[in-house]
Amino acid sequence: MFHQTPLKTGAVLLLATAAVVYAFTTGFFGLELLTEVAILAIVAIALDLVAGYGGMVSLCHGALYGVGAYAFASATVLLGWGGGAGMAMAVAGGGAFAWLIGAVSARTHGIFFIMATLAFGQMAYAYFFDSPLFGGSDGMPGIARLDLSGAGLDLNDSRGYALFCTVLALLAYALAATLLRSGFGRTLVGIRANEPRMRALGLPVWRHKAAAFGTSGALAGLAGALAAQHTMYVSPGLLHWTVSGELLIMVILGGLGTLVGAVLGAGVLVFVKHEVARFTDHWHMVVGLVLIATVLSGGRGIFGQIEFLWGRRGARRPEPAATEGSPDHA
C-alpha cells in the first residue's frame, strides 16, 4: 500500500531543491544530464507504478517511451500540429498502446508477462525501424520544442528546458502518488497481493490492470514527447528492449515500489554512468556490477533501504538520510 510518508515528501522536496540548485550552478553538459534525469524519472515513475505496485514487471516501457516520442514527432513534423497538440498525441499514443498491451497480457503472470511485454515492445521497435514514413533506421529530424514564450519561458534555452522537465517530473510524481492513494491504486495493490481473491470479489481484474498499464503508458508517452523535444530528433533506438532493461535497472537501483526510488534511481544511474565513462570505455561492466550488487544486497534499492532503516529507527528528521545519491554530488 502506498503512503506519502513525511520521509517521501522530504526526499521529493530535497531532490527538487537539489535539481534547481544544480540547474543554476552547473554548465551546459550538466543541464543536458539534468534534463535526461528528469525525463527518465518520469518513465521510471510510470514503470514503478505498474511494476512496484501492480506487480506487472514490464520490458516494454522503452517502447512506450519511444511511441510517445514518435507520436510527438509525427504530429508536429508530419502533420504540422502545434507543440501542445503534439504532447497530447504522445500521451494518448503511449496510453493507447499500453492499454492494449495491458489488456491482452492481463492473463499472463511473472516471467510470461515480462515476455509478453518484451514481444509487443520489440514489435513496435521493428515497425519503426523499417517504416519509411517515420524515417526508418535514420529516425526523424527537425522537431521543434514547445513554444511557451507567451508565458515568458524560453524552452530553447538549456536551463529553461531542464527546469521545465523537472517541473513535469514533479507533476508526474504527484499524479502517480495521488493515483496510488485513490481507490484505484488500492485495488491495484490488492490485485498484486491476491488476484484470485479480487476476481472472486467480482472485480473485472483485466480491465483494472489494463487501465493501470494504460496510465503508465500515458506517462511514458509524455516522457517520450519531452525526449523528442530535448534531442529535437527521434530514432528507433529509443524503443529497443535494452532501454526498457535500463529503466528497470533505475527502478530497482532506487527501490522498487517506493516511487521516490524511481526518481533517485534515474539520477544515480545517469550520473554514475557519466562519471564512470570519463574514466573507462567499459562502463557497461561497472553498471552491471552495481546492479548485481544492488539485487544481492537485499534488493531494496537505495530509497527502499533508507525507508527500511528509517522504519527501524523510528521517527527522526528525514533530510540526512535522503541526500544519498541525489544528483547534486556530481
Binding site: A51, V57, L59, G110, I111, I114, G245, L248, I249, I252, L256, H284, M285, V287, G288, L289, V290, L291, I292, V295, L296, G299
Partner: peptide, 14 residues
C-alpha cells in the same frame, strides 16, 4: 523473476 531478470541483465553487461 524480476530480481533474476535484473541480476542476469547485469551479467550481460559484465
Amino acid at each position: 523473476p524480476m530480481n533474476q531478470v535484473l541480476v542476469t541483465f547485469g551479467l550481460i553487461f559484465v
